[in-house]
Write a protein that binds this DNA or RNA. Structure first.
Lengths: 282, 282
DNA sequence: CGATTGGTTGATTCTACTCAAGCCCGGTGG
DNA sequence: CCACCGGGCTTGAGTAGAATCAACCAATCG
């Protein structure tokens, strides 16, 4: 069974929601925090779910970060726009993602736009923080998410800074497949609905959509990945891995903790670069 | 008085330390958390300060994240290395920076290398988390730092993805000056000791050191910034700002909360891009 | 003193961008 | 029903920005 992502239009998927715990009202349904189940405090923190059409803005860059959001269904892009029209897409969000977090008192440094029809669960920042203070496990979950975001950012940053066009596009597609599948590896031939345009990919990778087109063709001709008609198919997972994995000979690969840690920490060969100079490892 | 950064070799600077609160032993001195002052719990969490020579590795990519570090003196680079020798510098750390944070149970996705002689204050991850659980204000401080890191990452990511070579180098130098000065703006002619090589800049901006050299010359000839002989001088702050500020007409600029929020939240004009298509704003 | 590191410059190559055109498809309206 | 239109995709031709290759200089160091 090829894991086809739930991305039709406005699917009635009800993924787990790390923020909300209300079972009634037909809103958020998941309960990830035992301590909060049935909590009156949490119930009071809840706001009605918001629905967006594809292309609609969830929040704009520069808005005050009055709410934190949890994506219930659909895809959302986080992006930072420049005055002259350039846009950098920071990240594509799939259901269950938490977003709209900003440091105390600062306006949002990025915007969020629905890519498909989407529904999100908003919660006031003050209420959110209040909840965190009340419930340790909830706070820990939030901290964990922040730390994972940071980890992801380091990887993406490296790909963007050091990768060739092929590596960047390949890295993005790989990341998308992994996230959509919720797996740490992908079988050959696996296919996913990915509702992105070549332009989205361009804005996420810092390339021109025209060039993305050529790169996609190359990746197809190289029999690595295909992305056409809204469907992403992994032709050769090992080749894709090789393309992306220029990072570290063996480290940092088989781990992928989502929510709860999965793999056992490895011994790790430990690079030993003692000088800022020269090549760092062969 | 040009604020010259304390970066000679192993200066005996004693900046505030958000982690440690011990006053004795001549180690960390700052107390940023009232609730923890004199706390026996915190004292028990303290490990001896570690000293590194320039070029030494604080921790390697792939190491288990058993400790969190607080930079006491000197400069440190966080970086992610690729198997073929490429290196992306994620961030340059100045004293007071917290680093080595990784999601629960995962190995470090990046390494840390001392650029100058440096001293850091390590604290065991378990002890750190224990402290967070015990003391809310400490936990909040940590969350705030994570959020600020994330905010910074978004900006850096955008510059890397969308910026030209000049914008990237300019952006980095601007960021460095701002951080070194601890200010939100820089006076014309301000100069700072910046212990980086052109290669460091190259690895941070995703360029070749050769090209960085040319770009630095251009910036000098354009009378914007100069960086020579380890000294960074801001020739024309407004031109530098213009180079960097392609981001947003007016938003996201004058805010810069360090530790405690400084500026008042602004109303913010709020971009209104309602379509994923077309240019996003003029 | 030779060796190494960091910086500088020139010449050349190549990756990715720009400009330009054409195609396919779905929607809209005469 | 069909002409028209716009968005997304595709391809070609020319260009530019950054990388690569190759020296060379200055300072530091063992």
């Amino acid at each position: 069974m090829a894991p086809t992502a739930s991305t039709s239009t406005a699917s009635h998927a009800r993924p787990q929601c790390p923020v909300c715990v209300l079972r009634h009202r037909g809103q958020c349904q998941g309960i990830n925090d035992r301590d909060l189940a049935g909590s009156a405090a949490l119930e009071a923190s809840h706001s009605p779910v918001r629905i967006y059409d594809a292309g609609e803005v969830v929040y704009a860059q520069g808005d005050p970060g009055a709410h934190i959001f949890n994506l219930i269904s659909g895809w959302v892009a986080l992006h930072r726009d420049l005055a002259d029209g350039r846009r950098q897409i920071i990240r594509f969000l799939l259901p269950e993602a938490l977003f709209g977090v900003e440091p105390e008192g600062r306006d949002l440094g990025h915007g969020a736009t629905a890519i498909t029809n989407a529904s999100v669960c908003p919660i006031g920042r003050a209420k959110f923080d209040d909840l965190r203070h009340r419930t340790q496990s909830f706070n820990e979950r939030f901290v964990e998410i922040l730390q994972q975001d940071q980890h992801r950012a380091v990887e993406a940053f490296t790909t963007l800074g050091q990768g060739s066009a092929k590596e960047r596009v390949g890295g993005l597609l790989n990341e998308l497949a992994l996230t959509a599948a919720g797996q740490i590896s992908i079988r050959a031939g696996a296919a996913f609905k990915v509702p992105l345009t070549q332009r989205h990919i361009a804005e996420a990778t810092g390339l021109t959509s025209i060039h993305v087109n050529r790169v996609l063709r190359q990746l197809r001709e190289d029999r690595i990945v295909e992305f056409q008609h809204g469907v992403l198919s992994i032709v050769d997972p090992s080749k894709l891995q090789a393309l992306v994995d220029i990072g570290l000979g063996a480290l940092t690969k088989p781990q992928r903790a989502v929510g709860h840690p999965l793999g056992v920490p490895m011994p790790a060969p430990s690079l030993a670069a003692t000088s800022t100079t020269g090549r760092y490892q062969a």
